[in-house]
Amino acid sequence: MAPLQLSHVDSAIIGVWRWQAAIATLIVAVATFAISPSLPFLWPFAPALVVIGGIFLSWWWPSVSYRHLRYGVDETGIAIESGVIWRSRIALPRVRIQHTDVSQGPLERRYGIGTLKMYTAGSRHTKIELPGLQHEEAIALRDALLAEGAGSGV
């Protein structure tokens, strides 16, 4: 069997991640701005750090983690590669998929993408997620994975 051909997910996911990070940064930044003036040793540094870190996480990080998120499907199952600093590649045979979900948050819906969640009977990797697929593509992939995978025990 040839090694799996890995491909990137839809690049619209970068937008979703940017928005998510930006919103999270905003919440944290507001909180720090509100609290830190009363703590003199924190004042100029903590809010500045939050803003700089937030900009970094919302602009640069999503595109880097997008570059490292790849997946591939073959007749045996699916492999997902992710992580920037701690990298992992998980290989999931389709006979091991117990059930699947395709979920879509409000931001994801706005960008027309969905997250494919696959559940196994394993002990640690019980839920394996693949974000950033076009919603129809996620559903098609789910159907393809389930088509022959049914009917196995644990």
């Binding site: 701690w86 590649r89 290989a91 196994t120 009977a121």
Partner: peptide, 27 residues
Amino acid sequence: QTSSIESSPFDRRSRMASIYVDTAGAS
């Protein structure tokens, strides 16, 4: 159930990786 290859920055520096083989029924 699943097998995954994981590599930390230290692993990559020394061209190593760890493998995790998941099974059902354990904690």
